[in-house]
Amino acid sequence: MSRDTRREQGDALPLPEMNSPPQLDEKILAHARARAPQRRVTSRPGWMSGLAAASVVGIAVMITLPGQDGVHDTLPAPHWEARERTPAALSQPEALQADTLTDDVAQDARVDAQNGTQKDAQKGAQKTEGASLSAAPPKAVAAQSSARQSAGGLREEQARPDAQALERKMQAGASAKKIGRASPQPALNAVAPEAEQSAYRTPESSIERDQEDRDGATHQRMIEKGLETCAALLRSDDRPAAISCYAALRKDCGDCTLPPTLDAALEAQASDSVTSP
C-alpha cells in the first residue's frame, strides 16, 4: 500500500517528506567508493593458457604415436586390451575377466613347463574357474578378484622362472621366430613386467607346442594303423600284400624311423620301441 493511498484512506499521517541533501550524498558515495571491497580478480595469468596449450599438445603427441608398442602387434587383441585398461578403470566383471585371462596365461606357462601333457586338463580347469567367476555376482566377484590380485604377485613370482626357461627353449626352436619380435614394454598396471611379458609370450609357444604334439600323435597313430593293417594281411596269409603295405607305409611316413622290414617293425611294435620323430 503506497503512502498516498494510505493517506487518502486516512491511515497515513500528514508528516513532512525530506530529501537527503546533495552534499551528504556526495560525501557518502565518495566514502563508499573509497571503501569498496577490492574487486575479485577474474583474469587468468598468462602462464595458465600456455600450460593448457602445452598439455593439449602433449596429449595429442601421445595419441598420435601408438606404433611404438610392439606387444600389440604380437598379442591377440583381448590380451593387450586387458593390459591397457587399468583395473580401476574396468567395471568389476571386466576386471575379473582380464584378471582371469592373465592368470590363465601365467598358469598355462607354469603348467607347460612342469607337467607338459597335463596342460590341456589344467587349462580346461582354469577356464572353467574363470567362467564361473565371470558368472558370479558382482560382490563375490569383487572379493575373489581382490583375493586373486593379492595372490597374483606370488603366482607370477613362481611362474617367472618357468616362463623364462620356456622362453629360452622356444627361442632356440623354430617357433621362436615370432616370439622374438615381442619387445619389452613398460607395465601399465600392477602386473610385473617380466612375468607379464613371459606370460604374454607363452600362449603362442603353447600353441606351437600343441601343434607339435598333435603332429607327433598323428604320426604315431598313422604308424600304428598301418602296422595293424599290415599285420592283418600277414595273418590272412597274404604276405606279399603285407610287405607291400609296409613299404607303402614307410614311403608315406618318410620322416619316421621305421625298421626296414615288416617283421622287424612288428617286433619293435610288440616291444613298444617304435618311435616317431
Binding site: M18, S20, A36, P37, R39
Partner: peptide, 27 residues
C-alpha cells in the same frame, strides 16, 4: 555486488533508500 567490489551497485542502492531513511530520521 558491492561486497564483491561493484561500487556502482552501492550507488544504486543508496539512491533507492537515502530519502526514506533521511525522512525517517528527520521525523
Amino acid at each position: 555486488a558491492y561486497r564483491d567490489g561493484d561500487s556502482g551497485a552501492f550507488e544504486c542502492l543508496y539512491h533507492r533508500h537515502k530519502d526514506a531513511l533521511f525522512t525517517f530520521l528527520y521525523r
